[in-house]
Design a protein around this nucleic acid. Sequence first.
DNA 1: TCACTTGTGTACCTTTAGTTACATACGAGC
DNA 2: GCTCGTATGTAACTAAAGGTACACAAGTGA
Lengths: 219, 219
Amino acid sequence: MNQSLKPVIELDSFNAFRQLTISGKELLKRGLHIKHYQRRTTIVEKGQTVSGAFFVIDGKIRVFTISPDGTEATLYFIRPDEFCVFTLNCIFNDLLYPAWVQTDLDTTVAIIPANVYRSLFQTEKVIQDITVRAFSTIVNRLMTELESVHSYNLEKRLANFLLLSASSDRTLMMTQSEIAAHLGTTREVIARMLGRFVKAGSLETSRGKIKILRLSDML
Amino acid sequence: MNQSLKPVIELDSFNAFRQLTISGKELLKRGLHIKHYQRRTTIVEKGQTVSGAFFVIDGKIRVFTISPDGTEATLYFIRPDEFCVFTLNCIFNDLLYPAWVQTDLDTTVAIIPANVYRSLFQTEKVIQDITVRAFSTIVNRLMTELESVHSYNLEKRLANFLLLSASSDRTLMMTQSEIAAHLGTTREVIARMLGRFVKAGSLETSRGKIKILRLSDML
DNA sequence: TCACTTGTGTACCTTTAGTTACATACGAGC
DNA sequence: GCTCGTATGTAACTAAAGGTACACAAGTGA
């Protein structure tokens, strides 16, 4: 593969990286790795050492925990143009990765080696800003999630999840098992709740697909 | 104003602030406010605008949410020498404060106005490092909390909370209602579980006080 | 000492969520 | 159309946690 060309092309397409100084760009270019993963690939496991900062170029990544009994629960998603904050965390504090990571779609990731990222953080204002903004975002997401876990019952959280996950045509291509994994519960419970929503006329379900009809009744 | 002396004294007692440049120290000194609060005082409410970065000098602060039905749940504590990350978050993103804050003990707080903090962040390496470290810490705490909420039942979380909160003599001066507020549940539930622990010989309880006898049986 | 506030113990009931166990439905590929 | 793996629907049961209600105990202060 002619990978040598690719990083350069990719780099210029991000506002963030375009604002680097010349020497910053040089440094970054030398260290950067681009990786492609297929949908539903586990790319990091809990306890793994982290080689660098993960930056999502394209696709979508899911960060989740697995409890002792095996049920998963999504902590947050990483979308294009975002850093995986846990990798930043590991880099700055020399920690092991604290969760599992899976691609949710076909995904392209840029990996900036730890020492390169730390150097850039020292000297490049853009990187400092991006870092702080990334941490900010994730703190908000985690807090919101924690708050909603303790404030709302599963039905409300499910409704909320459906609304947030639905595409613009109010459709959601996802199986009940997948939904259950996001919310940290089991398939049967989701089936029961979706059943109630269907009975109330709020949803239509079919195999691997949910269509939202009336949002108002759900929340 | 003869307040000008106080910040200087306080300032020098922190490693972090001692490492500031001369101009950084000047800037900080001009803007810094020191505030004292009594134990159990609500110092920030959700939705409030935040004037600056809160730094705990002495005492202990509790950051918590309140759900629609009125039950509280502790998100995390802030101890001496730590920043309140949510205030940093508000400062960098111009947000309203997302939770409630109460002093847990008599507490002294340094408040660095938003614009001063942002300036310092631009130029002072120490502040950049402190900021990132503060964010790191909180991301870890929130993630751990989220993980344990979804992985463990209330009894295990209670046991864990007791062990972490107990002083070195394995004693905890706290009422059942307070414990309930930390874990986001009700007093009765805590009473029931403590009752079970007592029956099992793991604890001794008296009014406003819990003594841990055998930790091993609890986890 | 006595009234009062605050904290504790506990019994009973309800709701919510997780578990077990099947029956059935869909749809891609032969 | 038929087959088979995967997805869904659902009923019955269990467990966990919250809610109600009240008795009682331990300090507090007039």
